[in-house]
Design a binder for these strands. Sequence first.
DNA 1: CCTACCGATCGGTAGG
DNA 2: CCTACCGATCGGTAGG
Lengths: 191, 191
Amino acid sequence: MAILDAAVDAASEGGLESLTIGRLSRQLGMSKAGLFTHFGSKEALLVAIVRAARDRFYARVIEPALALPPGLSRLDAVFEHKVAGIHEPCFPGGCFFGKAATEFENRPGLVKDAIIEIVGEWVSFLTETLEQAVVAGELPADTDIELIAFEWRALTQHASRMIQLTGDPRGIELARRSIRARLDALRASVD
Amino acid sequence: MAILDAAVDAASEGGLESLTIGRLSRQLGMSKAGLFTHFGSKEALLVAIVRAARDRFYARVIEPALALPPGLSRLDAVFEHKVAGIHEPCFPGGCFFGKAATEFENRPGLVKDAIIEIVGEWVSFLTETLEQAVVAGELPADTDIELIAFEWRALTQHASRMIQLTGDPRGIELARRSIRARLDALRASVD
DNA sequence: CCTACCGATCGGTAGG
DNA sequence: CCTACCGATCGGTAGG
């Protein structure tokens, strides 16, 4: 929906809390009450925005990577689409879910629940991709997959933070180098 | 100042934007105008809060670590004080600066400037500590210090995010394990 | 989907 | 430091 797409962009820039029904409706050329009636409450609107961000992330990052064979090459593709933003970046203001998770980590409710669910889905995808790399013989059987997935998320998030905060794109290269070094060391021990 | 200490706690829980002069003044038992006059503007109040958070972080995390010899043991002490929160956690709602940086990364102004300055100071401290580890022969001379410092920040931030979002303390152990593995591998190559 | 409105709260000011 | 107030905006509702 166009309403939600504009809201996802705005939230990736200024956070979910920067959104107000009044401003969003003006931006869309409709009345406050008109927009409000679509969703019933501010919380329901935010949940819908979070789900729209998930769909966009899936279409722009996960779906293209699924075209590659499972395992490390798919993982590389995810990195390039997510962090480097091969085409255009998925979210204009940096990783939507990194920002949303930080914003709502201490705010229980339906919005936080939706964020937790989607982050869990994403962690599962990373974990499965790493398991496929083990099955394919690209990583050793005793690879600590939970640890690698944790590092992967940490490094990519931090790269996003660094580029947004200071405009310094070096974080992307640092994250890429760090992940490569770790995976190369594991790959070497397969032989 | 007691005013700022209460505000730092509140901001670490709900973010800097969750603060309003009205609520803060009520919490302190004074009038809105009274609090406002102390700082002159909302922005100046936020900058003062950011600086107070820096002072607290210095006193609770950096200062205690300075009691240890420079190098890896000092770095370990910083980790334990910052992430594991040996005594009480430095900030009740998770790392103040991780949250503040995320919140203001796309909002130019004096608040963002103060955050960037303090994060830079913190990165310098980490970098110097790693350089001291090289001098002490704990790490090889060709250690990529910028990379290690980047990883260190990424992993500790992500541990904080994970525990705040889901209550799952496993992130702390994952971050510790990841950092140890990396430093152990480097240490081994010194011999 | 709209106009018109509600009480609450925002950052900030006047004047003391 | 205070009381009292400003215009703007908030999420939400009434009624159509």
